[in-house]
Amino acid sequence: MAEATRILILGATSAIAERWARLRAARGDRLLLAARDPAKLAIVADDLRARGASEVLTAESDLGDADGAAERFSAFADRLGGVDIVLLAYGVLGDQADMQANTDHLRAMLDTNFTSAVIWSELAAGHLEQAGSGTLAVIASVAGDRGRRTNYAYGATKAGLSVYLEGLAHRFAGTPVSVLCVKPGFVDTPMTAHVAKGGPLWATPDMVAADIDRAIARRRTVIYTPWFWRLIMLIIRHLPRPIFNRLNI
């Protein structure tokens, strides 16, 4: 029987990460779950153990704050005995109007979604480079494809993150290390609990997790999930400004 894959999930209590972890647990993999809330971590860990993960470790860690990230990352990797796949899945949506009015809130969101995320990504990339192989997968967003008045603060962090990942993917092109940027559209998760769902554009976290799983196996660099968001964003990116300006999106 093959060695169990060693998986580090940063933001393991997020809905998409949890659903992906279930797919891996069913294959008997070993997981280290990092997130802020120890009670939620314990609940997720119990579930993954019951689903067949060969080992589930947890680490209570405020990932949005990157202070001491290098030491913390080393500790995660040591506990797992090395890492084969890193999934970075945390992030906050923020309220656009609130962040326009309160730049402390804006800064907190930038620190979480961009600053800390690129630092963890860089640390993960360095670890995989040393190991000689592995995958870094990071959840960005379709919101990063064009700045829109309803969520450009959030969108800008995801755009910056996507460019960082593009650079990492370029750095590792032709090597056994892969870097995947995941761009989900609308996903029915607690992050979007305030919105009425059910239209054809809404996906479940299970669908997104399955797409991530396939993309990791196929060593993809960028995916839109569900797939049709690639077309939607292609159109939105190319809308002439006079038309774009009339849209309230």
Binding site: D46, A50, P190
Partner: peptide
């Protein structure tokens, strides 16, 4: 949204 397993005894069949 409350769809987690809490414990699964694979020998005894208790879930």
């Amino acid at each position: 949204g409350l769809d987690r397993l809490i414990a699964f005894d694979r020998e005894g069949g208790i879930l």
